[in-house]
C-alpha cells in the first residue's frame, strides 16, 4: 500500500492561505483598467479645477473681493462683484461637472466586480480556487474601497483649495449652494457609497448592465432624498424672530410672516409689504420697522459654521450604509447557489 499519500486533510499544520500581496496583485490585475479610467477622469477634472482655480484666485485677489463679504459697507463692491461674474459662472458649471463623479466609482468599479464574474461564468473559476470566495471578495472590497477613498480624498482636497476664496463670501451650506455636494467628506463618502452600492447590486443582479443602472438609480435616489428631505433634519435649526437670520449666507429652512390680523402672509403679500416698507425708506432694518407695524416674522436657519457638522453626519451615515451594503454583499456571495 502506498503510505506516502496519507497527509490528512485535517492535519493541524494547514498550509497558509494566499497572502494579501498575492490577492493585491489579483485585484490590481483585474481592476486596473477601470481604476485607471476613473483616476484619469478625476485627474482631468482636477486639472480643470486647477486651471480655473488659478485664474479665479488671481481675479479674486486683483478685485479685492475679500472685502466684499455680505454686509460690507464698501461702495466699490458692486462693480467688483460684477467683474467677477464670469468666474462665478465657471465655478457653478464646474460644480455641476464634478457633482456626478462619485457615482462613477459605483458604476464602473463596483457594479462589474461580482456581476461580470457571474455574467461571463468566471465565478466558477474564481470561487473554486484554494483561497475561497470569502477571502477573495473581502480582499477585493477592502482594496477597492481604499483606492476609492484615497482618490476621492485627493480630489476633495483639490476642491477645497479651489473653492477656498469663496467660503467667506458665498458659504458652503444651503439649498441654493451646491458646493456642499462636491465638497469634503461628503464627496468621499458618496464615492464609497456608490462603490458599495455597485458591488451589492452586482451580487444581487449578477448582470453588469442592470447592476450599473441600479447603482445610478440608487445613488441619485439617496442623494435626492437627502437633499430634498433629510438633510435639514440632521440638526435642530436656530430660530430668529423679527430680524434677518444673522451671519453671512445663513441656510434658511422656514420663513413665516404674520400680518397684524394674525393671518400668514402669502408670497405675493410679503413682497407687497416689503416693497411698501422699502419705498417708505426703511431699507436698513425692514424687520424692525415691520414689527413696529404689527407684522411678525419668524425664521429657522442654520449658520454657515454648522457646515462640517452637517458634512460629518451625512458622510457618517453614508459610510455606515456602505458598510451594511458590503456586509450584505459578502453574505449574498457566501450563500449564493447558482
Amino acid at each position: 500500500m502506498t503510505t506516502a499519500v496519507t497527509e490528512s486533510p485535517t492535519a493541524p499544520t494547514r498550509p497558509s492561505r494566499p497572502q494579501l500581496r498575492a490577492l493585491t496583485w489579483v485585484t490590481w490585475r483585474q481592476h486596473r483598467t477601470a481604476s485607471a479610467g476613473l483616476i484619469g477622469v478625476l485627474l482631468l477634472c482636477g486639472l480643470l479645477l486647477l486651471q480655473n482655480g488659478l485664474t479665479m484666485h488671481a481675479d479674486f485677489r486683483r478685485l479685492g473681493l475679500a472685502d466684499c463679504i455680505p454686509g460690507h459697507k464698501n461702495p466699490a463692491c458692486p462693480v467688483r462683484i460684477d467683474a467677477f461674474h464670469h468666474d462665478l459662472d465657471l465655478v457653478t458649471r464646474l460644480t455641476a461637472i464634478i457633482f456626478p463623479l462619485p457615482v462613477l466609482f459605483g458604476m464602473f468599479l463596483g457594479a462589474p466586480l461580482i456581476a461580470r464574474e457571474f455574467e461571463s461564468g468566471t465565478h466558477r473559476f474564481a470561487f473554486t480556487q484554494g483561497v475561497g470566495r470569502t477571502r477573495w471578495l473581502v480582499t477585493k472590497i477592502t482594496l477597492l474601497a481604499t483606492l476609492t477613498i484615497a482618490s476621492a480624498g485627493a480630489f476633495a482636497t483639490i476642491v477645497i483649495w479651489w473653492y477656498s476664496p469663496l467660503v467667506p463670501s458665498h458659504g458652503r451650506l444651503g439649498t441654493g449652494n451646491l458646493t456642499y455636494e462636491v465638497y469634503g467628506t461628503v464627496f468621499i463618502a458618496r464615492a464609497l457609497f456608490a462603490l458599495a452600492l455597485g458591488i451589492f447590486a452586482g451580487a444581487l443582479f449578477r448582470r453588469v448592465v442592470p447592476a450599473i443602472a441600479a447603482t445610478l438609480a440608487g445613488w441619485v435616489a439617496i442623494f435626492t432624498v437627502t437633499f430634498v428631505r433629510l438633510r435639514s433634519h440632521f440638526l435642530t435649526p436656530r430660530t430668529v424672530i423679527n430680524a434677518m437670520a444673522p451671519g453671512s449666507n445663513p441656510w434658511v429652512i422656514t420663513e413665516k410672516w404674520t400680518a397684524p390680523d394674525g393671518h400668514t402672509l402669502s408670497t405675493t403679500e410679503i413682497s407687497t409689504v416689503q416693497n411698501t416698507a422699502s419705498t417708505t425708506g426703511h431699507t436698513q432694518d425692514m424687520y424692525a420697522y415691520l414689527a413696529h407695524q404689527g407684522y411678525s416674522y419668524k425664521a429657522t436657519y442654520f449658520p454657515q459654521n454648522r457646515f462640517w457638522t452637517f458634512q460629518t453626519i451625512e458622510a457618517g451615515s453614508l459610510t455606515l450604509l456602505s458598510l451594511l451594503l458590503l456586509i450584505a454583499t459578502v453574505w449574498l456571495v457566501r450563500r449564493h447557489a447558482a
Binding site: P15, P18, Q30, G130
Partner: peptide, 21 residues
Amino acid sequence: ALYPSLSVADMLHLARNLNTG
C-alpha cells in the same frame, strides 16, 4: 471559465496567487 482578457502568463500568475502550493 478562464478570464478571456488575460494573457496565459497572467492567468497562470492569477491562479498562483489564488492558491497555496
